[in-house]
């Protein structure tokens, strides 16, 4: 079983890279013949990834959310899965490479660094932890996708303003759609992050005797949450729009990544498990 888990662990980056290559080829050439097969490839990749996560959970007796590299593989899955659903619902197919590449990065790091942990701290076996981590992860994939669409919005905005009608202009959906996709993903991310924070505030003080509100991850997530809150409220009130909102989303994403990295790798707190 371990061999099978290892095999899947190394197979997943290959699958993601192949899927990314097909999406990129389709983006570069604009040929319609790969329009459906690229989606099928993404589906197969997600199927194998889901199998990997299930087999891992059954064999090690806990869901793969107990350390940062387990979380990375779940994050890679969540990002591509969210994109897959988004592509199915909206039928906007030209943005795949920009999202899937994020999954590749997370999966490669996870595949290299992940270890087989059979015994985990009792505190990590709580059901509340499962919901806390799940909502945080899907929330983070939401803001990741929001930032990618925000970045694409800025690229297209710049191309149109500068009269550069290249690949970005020809292949991407229009600015309004990119803004809408970025905003909707940010709202989903924000709602789920709110859930994660609320559950965390209820559960963490009970679970960890050394709990502190000065925990770097808690502070980082709170800053990200406040930033998204300001951005979403301003957009809903009609005060901000377009470029300003997407820049805010990108800043929020960068702070979220930095805070995760800093709190996981540099500081030692009750919130670090690796």
């Amino acid at each position: 079983m371990v061999n099978f888990i290892d095999f899947l662990n190394w197979l997943l980056p290959v699958f993601y890279i192949v899927t990314f290559s097909i999406y990129s080829y389709d983006f570069m050439t604009g040929k319609k013949e790969l329009a459906n097969s690229k989606r099928l490839f993404l589906f197969i990749t997600l199927l194998f990834h889901a199998l990997y996560l299930i087999v891992r959970t059954i064999y090690f007796g806990h869901p793969p959310i107990t350390n940062v590299f387990e979380i990375f593989t779940v994050l890679a899955f969540a990002i591509s899965f969210s994109y897959f659903i988004l592509e199915l619902v909206t039928d906007i197919r030209g943005t795949g490479p920009f999202i899937i590449i994020i999954s590749i990065l997370f999966q490669i790091i996870s595949s290299i660094e992940i270890e087989h942990i059979v015994t985990v701290k009792d505190v990590l076996k709580s059901n509340l932890l499962g919901i806390h981590v799940f909502s945080a992860l899907v929330g983070y994939s939401g803001i990741t996708i929001s930032a990618v669409y925000g970045f694409l919005y800025l690229m297209l905005y710049k191309e149109i303003k500068l009269n550069q009608f290249g690949l970005i202009f020809n292949r991407l959906p229009n600015l309004e759609i990119l803004e809408r996709l970025s905003f909707s993903s940010a709202v989903i991310g924000f709602v789920l992050l709110t859930c994660a924070i609320v559950i965390g505030i209820i559960w963490l003080p009970r679970a960890f005797p050394n709990f502190s509100y000065a925990d770097p991850k808690l502070i980082g997530t709170s800053i990200v949450w406040i930033l998204y809150g300001i951005g979403i409220t301003s957009k809903l009130l009609g005060k901000w729009r377009g470029k300003k909102v997407v820049i805010f989303s990108i800043i929020g994403f960068v702070i979220a990544i930095l805070s995760t990295m800093l709190s996981n790798f540099l500081s030692v707190s009750f919130h670090s498990f690796y």
């Binding site: 202009f169 959906p173 229009n174 600015l175």
Partner: peptide
Amino acid sequence: QLIEKIFS
């Protein structure tokens, strides 16, 4: 065509 790259 250009307008349709700005508005959906």
